[in-house]
Design a protein around this nucleic acid. Structure first.
Lengths: 129, 129
DNA sequence: ATAATAACGATAATCAATATCAATAAGTTA
DNA sequence: TAACTTATTGATATTGATTATCGTTATTAT
C-alpha cells in the first residue's frame, strides 16, 4: 500500500507554499534545508506522484528544466527570456482548446507558454546568468 | 564571413521538403543517406542557424526531442501521446496572444502544443515504442 | 595558387531526468 | 512492543538530447 513519509509531506508543502514555479532543483534545495540527506531522485519521484495525483501540475519550458505549479486549474504561463522567471498568465485556455481544429484527433490537454521580456528586465541587456 | 557548404544546403533542403516535423536525429538520418560522414553536431548547428535566419522554426515538445518545421508562420501543434506524431493545428495564434494578459511583461512569442490521441491511435492501447 | 579562417567531423562534456539497488523505515500483524 | 513485509529512500549509475571542444578540411577573397 502507499505510505506516508516525511519526504512526501515536505515536498508537497514546499510546492504548495511556493509562488515562484520552482524547478525540481529548486524544490531539492528547499527540501535540503529541512532534510539535508534527501535525494534528488526522491524529489523527482514525489513531484511526479503529486502531478499524477492532480495536486500540482508540471510546466514544461522549452530548453529549460520543467517548473512545478500549485495552481492546477487550466492557465497559461509566461517565461522571461532574460531572467528565466516563470509566471502565470490570465487566459481562457478552454476557449483556446475549443477554437483549435485538430481534425479527427482528440485534444486532451494543451501547454501554452508565452515568451518575452518581463518588466524587471525590460531595458536591461543582461542575459540569463 | 558566412560560407556556403554542401552540408547547409542539404539540411535546409531536407527540412523544407519534409512534411513530418522531423527531429534533429531524423534530419541526421536523412542527411547521412547523401553525406554518410556528416556529423550530428553539424546537423544541430545548421538547424539552429536556419532557425536564427527565420527559414524554419523549432517546435519544443515536452519530454521529447524538439521538432523542426518548415512552416514559419505562427501556428500551433498537436502531439499524439501514443505514437508521438506531431502535426500542425489550425488556430488563430495572434488572437491568443492578443487575448493573453501578461501585465507589464512584453509578449514576443508563444508556444502552443496540444496533446491528445490522433485518429490512427484512437482505440489502440499501444504505448510509444 | 595561396592564405585566412569559417565550417566540419569526431568526440568529450553537460544537463535534465530516469533507472538501479541495497539499506531503511512505514504500517501492519503477531 | 517486537518482528515482519515491502514501499520508499539515498546514493549512484545511466540515459537521452543537446552543446562544446578541437584538430582538420574546405570555402572564398586576394
Amino acid at each position: 500500500m502507499k505510505r506516508n513519509t516525511v519526504q512526501k509531506d515536505l515536498i508537497k508543502k514546499i510546492v504548495l507554499a511556493s509562488c515562484e514555479h520552482p524547478t525540481a532543483e529548486g524544490v531539492y534545495a528547499s527540501a535540503r534545508e529541512v532534510l539535508p540527506n534527501i535525494s534528488l531522485g526522491t524529489v523527482y519521484r514525489v513531484l511526479h506522484e503529486l502531478v499524477e495525483a492532480g495536486d500540482i501540475i508540471e510546466v514544461p519550458v522549452s530548453g529549460r528544466p520543467s517548473r512545478f505549479d500549485k495552481t492546477t486549474g487550466a492557465h497559461a504561463h509566461f517565461v522571461c527570456k532574460k531572467c528565466g522567471e516563470v509566471r502565470d498568465v490570465a487566459l481562457n485556455v478552454a476557449g483556446v482548446m475549443a477554437a483549435a481544429d485538430a481534425g479527427e484527433s482528440v485534444i486532451e490537454d494543451v501547454d501554452i507558454v508565452f515568451e518575452g521580456v518581463c518588466e524587471n528586465c525590460n531595458g536591461k541587456h543582461d542575459a540569463i546568468a
